[in-house]
Structure formats: C-alpha cells, structure tokens
C-alpha cells in the first residue's frame, strides 16, 4: 500500500501518525509541503533514515524544486508525476493529509 504525506512534519503530526500504521514494504511518498520532511540534516532526518530500513521512501521532485530543496536525505528517491502514477499502478493508495 502506497502512503502519501502532504504536510510538513514541522507543522502537523500527519507524518508521525502515518508511520505508526505502515506495514513493512509499504512505500511512502512525500508530496506538497510533505517534502520538507526529507530535506537533509533536519530534525526528522533520523526518522527518515530508520524508516528506510523497512520502507522505500520517495519525494515528488517538482515539489522539492518548487521549495528550493536540493539536499535530500540519503536513500530518498526523487520522482516526478509520472513516477507517482507508476507507484499507484503497483499499490493501492492511502493518502494522508
């Protein structure tokens, strides 16, 4: 199941709440303000790193670029809308707000 998160973890608990329900192997895609979570070396970087032990992590590239985020946490895969659709092809979706 693909989980998308569109909120900055600095503003809401959406990301941390979502993480409690993840199953091993579920991909996580950060979109919109959610992409602030994967900026390298922020307060949530350790959480993103440990998330990747069991879950592939993606961020929507157009949202990263729009926000001037160039340094992304290691292992996070930046994808475009085409890649977003690709993930939806492979998984049912759980869109968190």
């Amino acid at each position: 199941m693909l989980h998308t998160i569109n909120k900055s973890p600095f503003e809401t608990l959406t990301m941390e709440t979502c993480f409690r329900f993840l199953q091993p192997g579920d991909p996580v895609l950060f979109i919109e303000d959610g992409v602030y979570a994967v900026q390298a070396a922020n307060r949530f970087s350790p959480m993103i790193e440990s998330l990747q032990k069991n879950n592939p992590v993606f961020a929507l590239q157009p949202d990263l670029i729009a926000r001037g985020i160039t340094a992304v946490a290691e292992g996070v895969d930046a994808i475009d809308y085409d890649g977003f659709v690709g993930l939806v092809e492979e998984h049912q979706v759980n869109n968190w707000f």
């Binding site: 569109n6 979109i31 919109e32 157009p62 085409d82 977003f84 659709v85």
Partner: peptide
C-alpha cells in the same frame, strides 16, 4: 491549497501513461 494542482498534474500524468 495545492491539492487541486497536484490532482490535475497527477491526472495528466496518468492519462499520458
């Protein structure tokens, strides 16, 4: 909110695929 813009971009990309 950006929701409408993301939804539109997603729809376009899905159709393209």
């Amino acid at each position: 909110h950006q929701a409408s813009d993301t939804a539109f971009k997603f729809a376009e990309a899905a159709i393209k695929r």
